[in-house]
Measured scan of single mutants.
Amino acid sequence: RYRTTFTSYQLEELERAFQKTHYPDVFTREELAMRLDLTEARVQVWFQNRRAKWRK
């Protein structure tokens, strides 16, 4: 599977959502995914990776 490349707008929005909550529920993820034209799975994985980065 190829690596997803996020646009700067998508990253800004994902980071903004991350500032609000590190653990968005499925509705929040679905809403973000639709708004950013991504799949909910991509959003979920982004948050997993972002939390890992945050913990370091």
Rank of each mutant, 00 (worst) to 15 (best):
residue 18 F to T: 00
residue 20 K to T: 07
residue 5 T to Y: 13
residue 40 E to R: 08
residue 47 F to M: 05
residue 53 K to F: 05
residue 37 D to R: 12
residue 19 Q to D: 14
residue 2 Y to N: 15
residue 35 R to C: 11
residue 20 K to Q: 14
residue 50 R to N: 04
residue 28 T to Y: 15
residue 16 R to W: 03
residue 40 E to F: 09
residue 15 E to M: 02
residue 32 L to K: 02
residue 8 S to A: 11
residue 1 R to L: 10
residue 54 W to M: 08
residue 47 F to T: 03
residue 34 M to H: 14
residue 56 K to C: 04
residue 4 T to N: 15
residue 14 L to A: 00
residue 35 R to F: 05
residue 22 H to T: 09
residue 36 L to G: 01
residue 34 M to R: 15
residue 17 A to I: 10
residue 30 E to T: 12
residue 11 L to K: 10
residue 49 N to W: 09
residue 15 E to I: 03
residue 31 E to H: 11
residue 7 T to K: 03
residue 3 R to W: 13
residue 37 D to L: 07
residue 7 T to S: 08
residue 16 R to Q: 13
residue 14 L to Q: 00
residue 52 A to G: 09
residue 16 R to K: 06
residue 23 Y to L: 06
residue 55 R to L: 11
residue 14 L to Y: 01
residue 38 L to G: 02
residue 9 Y to N: 07
residue 23 Y to M: 04
residue 56 K to E: 03
residue 45 V to T: 08
residue 7 T to P: 02
residue 17 A to S: 13
residue 9 Y to C: 13
residue 22 H to E: 07
residue 55 R to C: 11
residue 31 E to P: 01
residue 33 A to N: 02
residue 13 E to R: 03
residue 39 T to W: 04
residue 44 Q to S: 10
residue 10 Q to V: 03
residue 51 R to I: 13
residue 42 R to T: 12
residue 29 R to F: 06
residue 13 E to T: 06
residue 28 T to P: 02
residue 42 R to Y: 03
residue 25 D to S: 08
residue 38 L to K: 00
residue 25 D to C: 09
residue 3 R to P: 11
residue 26 V to A: 08
residue 36 L to T: 08
residue 12 E to N: 08
residue 50 R to K: 11
residue 43 V to E: 00
residue 4 T to I: 08
residue 28 T to W: 08
residue 36 L to Q: 00
residue 23 Y to N: 13
residue 26 V to S: 11
residue 17 A to G: 12
residue 46 W to Q: 00
residue 56 K to A: 11
residue 53 K to R: 12
residue 23 Y to E: 13
residue 16 R to E: 11
residue 3 R to E: 13
residue 23 Y to K: 04
residue 29 R to T: 14
residue 15 E to D: 04
residue 31 E to W: 08
residue 26 V to E: 13
residue 11 L to V: 08
residue 41 A to N: 05
residue 19 Q to C: 10
residue 41 A to F: 02
residue 23 Y to Q: 11
residue 52 A to Q: 09
residue 27 F to Q: 13
residue 32 L to N: 00
residue 4 T to E: 14
residue 21 T to Y: 14
residue 32 L to E: 00
residue 30 E to R: 12
residue 42 R to A: 10
residue 32 L to D: 01
residue 42 R to H: 14
residue 22 H to F: 06
residue 53 K to W: 06
residue 53 K to Q: 14
residue 44 Q to W: 07
residue 34 M to C: 09
residue 3 R to D: 10
residue 32 L to M: 05
residue 28 T to I: 03
residue 31 E to G: 13
residue 18 F to P: 01
residue 5 T to A: 06
residue 44 Q to K: 13
residue 45 V to Q: 12
residue 14 L to D: 00
residue 43 V to H: 01
residue 43 V to Y: 01
residue 36 L to M: 05
residue 13 E to K: 03
residue 30 E to C: 11
residue 30 E to V: 05
residue 44 Q to A: 12
residue 46 W to I: 00
residue 52 A to P: 03
residue 48 Q to N: 02
residue 12 E to K: 06
residue 54 W to S: 10
residue 29 R to N: 04
residue 20 K to L: 05
residue 1 R to T: 14
residue 22 H to P: 12
residue 52 A to N: 15
residue 7 T to V: 04
residue 20 K to F: 05
residue 47 F to L: 04
residue 24 P to C: 06
residue 43 V to M: 02
residue 13 E to C: 13
residue 34 M to E: 11
residue 16 R to N: 05
residue 43 V to I: 11
residue 46 W to H: 02
residue 56 K to M: 11
residue 21 T to D: 11
residue 2 Y to S: 14
residue 21 T to M: 11
residue 40 E to I: 13
residue 27 F to I: 14
residue 25 D to R: 02
residue 3 R to C: 13
residue 33 A to M: 06
residue 55 R to A: 13
residue 45 V to L: 12
residue 25 D to V: 02
residue 10 Q to R: 00
residue 55 R to I: 14
residue 13 E to I: 03
residue 27 F to V: 15
residue 47 F to S: 00
residue 33 A to V: 04
residue 55 R to S: 15
residue 45 V to E: 12
residue 25 D to A: 07
residue 19 Q to G: 14
residue 26 V to R: 07
residue 21 T to W: 04
residue 55 R to P: 09
residue 7 T to Y: 04
residue 46 W to A: 00
residue 19 Q to T: 07
residue 19 Q to S: 13
residue 46 W to R: 01
residue 4 T to V: 08
residue 8 S to D: 14
residue 11 L to C: 04
residue 40 E to T: 09
residue 39 T to L: 10
residue 30 E to Q: 10
residue 2 Y to P: 05
residue 14 L to E: 00
residue 14 L to R: 01
residue 48 Q to W: 07
residue 28 T to A: 08
residue 40 E to Y: 07
residue 49 N to H: 08
residue 4 T to W: 07
residue 15 E to G: 02
residue 18 F to E: 00
residue 9 Y to S: 06
residue 10 Q to P: 00
residue 2 Y to T: 13
residue 21 T to N: 10
residue 47 F to A: 01
residue 51 R to M: 10
residue 19 Q to K: 08
residue 24 P to D: 05
residue 7 T to F: 04
residue 19 Q to Y: 02
residue 31 E to M: 11
residue 25 D to I: 03
residue 53 K to E: 15
residue 40 E to H: 08
residue 39 T to C: 08
residue 38 L to Q: 03
residue 44 Q to C: 11
residue 17 A to P: 00
residue 16 R to M: 08
residue 31 E to L: 13
residue 51 R to D: 03
residue 16 R to V: 09
residue 11 L to E: 14
residue 18 F to L: 00
residue 21 T to F: 03
residue 44 Q to I: 13
residue 28 T to M: 12
residue 21 T to P: 02
residue 55 R to Y: 05
residue 20 K to H: 08
residue 28 T to F: 11
residue 45 V to F: 04
residue 48 Q to F: 03
residue 49 N to A: 12
residue 36 L to E: 01
residue 27 F to L: 08
residue 52 A to W: 04
residue 40 E to Q: 09
residue 1 R to S: 14
residue 47 F to G: 00
residue 44 Q to G: 11
residue 22 H to Y: 07
residue 39 T to D: 10
residue 47 F to P: 01
residue 32 L to R: 00
residue 52 A to R: 06
residue 56 K to P: 10
residue 32 L to S: 01
residue 11 L to H: 06
residue 14 L to I: 04
residue 6 F to M: 13
residue 20 K to Y: 08
residue 30 E to P: 01
residue 13 E to P: 00
residue 41 A to H: 06
residue 4 T to D: 14
residue 10 Q to T: 02
residue 22 H to D: 10
residue 55 R to G: 11
residue 8 S to F: 09
residue 32 L to G: 00
residue 20 K to D: 07
residue 42 R to V: 15
residue 47 F to Q: 02
residue 43 V to F: 01
residue 41 A to D: 14
residue 36 L to S: 02
residue 13 E to V: 08
